[in-house]
């Protein structure tokens, strides 16, 4: 008896000894819970608010412009002529194609460079090399994109212009290349995490079969980490699609449909940045077109994310 009561002072002090009601009302617990719930609720509210704010002006825009013309038209003259006139070409394809072209160039740079870095760090680098390279990579991720933008314009374009026969200092090619370097840290760092998470036992199994490091990396580690690598690339892709400053600064502001990346062309984000920074009086057609382009961008990024979730699931390996 002495043993059982020793750890339960309430049983003697509380009278009945079997009282299961709380000792205090625990007000603090309730306050914290409601604060946390409010924080979670706020994010939902903001998301809903953004969607509503984006969608409502669309009704006005599509009352004047047919969605078919918007999505299939190949000329975009929103920023030309009379600001209050609806009598313009509202075909968004030039902006969309410029966005995809710049993104494609960026990925063409970021995937090989990023995966190369990831493979090196995960499979080849000594601990010491990794300790130097990783922070430098993270430093690269911390550079503001506007800095990348004017570096493209002032440093890289003058070098590449004569070499590649670029007609204008504003062009998608250099902007895309620089944007590629901007997303290299994202691709490299997340891919490296995915590759490092591959169990050592799989590498041992490969080496024990007489495979060398290259075969082990490419045929065992890389496929095993593919799910994470895809996630890394898609995150980089999303960042590239949504990237604004580099393209606004170095890509130019001329909305036109072109197949040559050396041309100047305006992306969706660059258009939004140009118009939103003061050109569009509220209520004007150009003002409403901002929402149409913004909503389309939102749909594109959302689609990319949904596809990526499927891809990541498809290639997920359980080991």
């Amino acid at each position: 008896m002495a043993v059982t009561t020793a750890g339960r002072p309430r049983s003697s002090a509380g009278g009945s000894g079997r009282d299961l009601t709380p000792r205090s009302p625990r007000v603090g617990e309730k306050i914290i819970e409601s604060l946390l719930a409010a924080a979670a609720g706020l994010s939902v509210l903001v998301t809903v608010g953004i969607i509503v704010a984006l969608v409502v002006p669309l009704f006005t825009f599509f009352a004047h412009v047919s969605p078919i013309e918007f999505l299939t038209g190949t000329t975009w003259t929103a920023s030309f002529g009379d600001k209050y006139s609806w009598d313009k070409d509202w075909g968004v394809l030039p902006l969309v194609s410029a966005t995809f072209m710049a993104t494609g160039i960026a990925l063409a740079v970021a995937i090989p460079v990023g995966l190369g870095i990831a493979m090196f760090l995960s499979e080849y680098a000594t601990t010491r090399a990794r300790k130097v390279i990783k922070p430098v990579l993270e430093l690269l991720a911390g550079i503001p994109t506007v800095v990348y933008g004017f570096l493209a314009l002032t440093a890289l374009t003058p070098i590449l212009q004569p070499l590649l026969g670029i007609p204008n200092i504003y062009n998608l090619l250099v902007a895309g290349i620089v944007m590629g370097f901007m997303i290299v840290p994202t691709v490299a760092s997340l891919s490296e995490d995915a590759m490092s998470a591959v169990p050592q036992a799989l590498r041992s199994g490969s080496y024990a079969l007489g495979a060398n490091r290259r075969m082990t990396t490419l045929q065992v580690v890389f496929p095993a980490a593919l799910s994470g690598i895809i996630a890394a690339i898609v995150l980089g892709l999303s960042r590239a699609v949504g990237e604004t400053m580099i393209l606004a600064v170095a890509g130019g502001n001329l909305a036109r449909l072109t197949a040559d990346p050396r041309d100047e062309a305006q992306t969706m984000t660059a258009f939004i940045a140009q118009i939103a920074s003061g050109d569009a009086p509220q209520g004007s057609p150009v003002y409403y077109s901002l929402f149409a382009v913004g909503a389309l961008l939102f749909v594109i990024t959302l689609t990319i994310n949904l596809i990526s979730i499927r891809l990541v699931r498809r290639f997920r390996q359980v080991y």
Binding site: A201, G205, L209
Partner: peptide, 17 residues
């Protein structure tokens, strides 16, 4: 070359994915 002639089986089954 050594490992091609001297194979190994590990403690925990480690098939490749």
């Amino acid at each position: 070359e050594v490992r091609r002639r001297i194979g190994m089986v590990f403690q925990k089954p480690n098939p490749f994915p």
